[in-house]
């Protein structure tokens, strides 16, 4: 009798242990709830890929340079591959939202720069000002853009860029 009541007590404790274990499994598989973005916020994403201008123009090889090279490697023109860094500035309502200078990737600094930046902003109407400089050989910004946008709750505003159309709001 005593043995069977001990066994019964054990089963109760086992059931309790399983219940606690499963409660932990269930709770942390869905809770606590995480708020990724507030209801009065939207997301601005600046994402594009762009290659800066070449650092130097192609030029003719000098006679001395040609003489120093083996005959099969002599080229009349020298074209350096290095590209300019990209300077990007994004202002929202006159405040800097994003400002960054990115050097070109690659062994010869000749790759395209990938920009991806996101920022949470308050919903409502905003004035965006975008500036991009992609050449060290010229003064000032190569591209600029101004646009006003009304952002709704949880909206994602994607700002893209390409040489043909400049900054594009999506």
């Amino acid at each position: 009798m005593a043995k069977s009541s001990t066994k019964f007590g054990q089963y109760i404790l086992q059931a309790l242990s399983y219940a606690v274990f499963m409660a932990v499994v269930w709770y942390f598989s869905v809770a606590p709830v995480y708020r990724h973005i507030d209801a009065d916020q939207a997301l601005v994403v600046i994402a594009f890929k762009h290659a800066g201008q070449l650092l130097e123009e192609c030029r003719e090889s000098t006679a001395e340079e040609l003489a120093n090279l083996p005959a099969n490697m002599r080229k009349p023109m020298v074209c350096p591959r290095e590209r300019s860094p990209i300077l990007l500035e994004v202002l929202m309502d006159g405040e800097v939202l994003f400002s960054q200078t990115e050097n070109p990737p690659g062994l010869y600094n000749d790759g395209s720069v990938s920009i991806y930046h996101s920022a949470r902003v308050p919903v409502g109407k905003h004035q965006f000002e975008l500036k991009l400089k992609d050449s060290v050989r010229s003064e000032g910004y190569s591209f600029t853009h101004n646009e006003e946008r009304l952002l709704e709750s949880a909206e994602i505003l994607v700002i893209n860029f390409n040489t043909e159309h400049g900054f594009v709001f999506k």
Partner: peptide, 14 residues
Amino acid sequence: DLGIVPQTLNLDWF
């Protein structure tokens, strides 16, 4: 929906 940011999430914290 890639045009909207997920607001509240029931994360699996494990």
